[in-house]
């Protein structure tokens, strides 16, 4: 068994042993979305206009919350050192780690999003767009975020720094995804936006593992 598969297995096992790791961001997702009607306006005709954007912002924040735990424990307990010592391609490892992260953050968020749609009076026509945009968009968040997580894994208190680095990079995903949901809600097509998200996903899959691998190698120096 290669180290990549072993690591994917081990990380999934770890997530199963520590349910908080994936359940807390989900809870956070739910609560952030609940804040908007309370703080802004509970009127359904207003909510249905902002629902897509709010759900996406909440998903983005929830993703950020779980990113800090992606590489930091591995740096601290020496697992990263063992990866580097293994001579295996870091590209594969970075891709595998991002995949695991998506499985325990993006995927549950996607599955739970229709519930938030109900809470925020999302128009009926927009549910498909919401789920599809999350399905394509959240892997991009995981892949991009993994670069930030790799960069800040060795920094004490790097969680906040991670958000600073990554949020600007998330803007394009947010724009296209929220727009897809919004357009679906007013009965327009949203194929274009989904296609853009798909293009971003392809680009992120091809490039970000290189950046993450390079960032992980920085830990060689210490």
């Amino acid at each position: 068994m290669s180290l990549v598969t072993a690591t994917i297995r081990r990380d999934l096992l770890l997530a199963a042993r520590n349910p908080g790791e994936w359940a807390n961001p989900l809870m956070f997702f739910l609560m952030v979305a609940a804040l908007f009607p309370l703080a802004v306006d509970p009127d359904p005709s207003f909510l249905e206009k902002i629902a897509g954007g709010v759900i996406w912002v909440a998903a983005l924040l929830a993703t950020l919350l779980s990113l800090d735990g992606l590489y930091r424990p591995d740096v601290e307990d020496g697992s990263l050192e063992q990866w580097l010592a293994s001579g295996e391609s870091l590209y594969g490892l970075a891709l595998g780690k991002a995949l695991v992260h998506w499985c325990i953050s993006g995927l549950p968020l996607t599955l739970m999003s229709p519930l938030l749609g109900l809470m925020l009076s999302l128009p009926d026509e927009a549910y498909a767009a919401l789920v599809l945009s999350l399905l394509i968009g959240t892997p991009v968040l995981s892949l991009l975020g993994a670069v930030g997580a790799a960069l800040t894994a060795g920094v004490r208190g790097g969680g906040l720094l991670l958000s600073l680095l990554i949020l600007p990079l998330y803007i394009p995903v947010l724009i296209f995804a929220a727009s897809a949901v919004y357009h679906a809600g007013i009965g327009m097509t949203y194929n274009g936006q989904l296609a853009m998200l798909g293009a971003m996903l392809a680009l992120a899959m091809a490039l970000t593992p290189f950046a993450a691998a390079a960032a992980l190698k920085i830990n060689l120096l210490r």
Partner: peptide, 8 residues
């Protein structure tokens, strides 16, 4: 790290 982020 700064250089990698700048390139990204």
């Amino acid at each position: 790290a700064g250089a990698i982020l700048a390139l990204v």
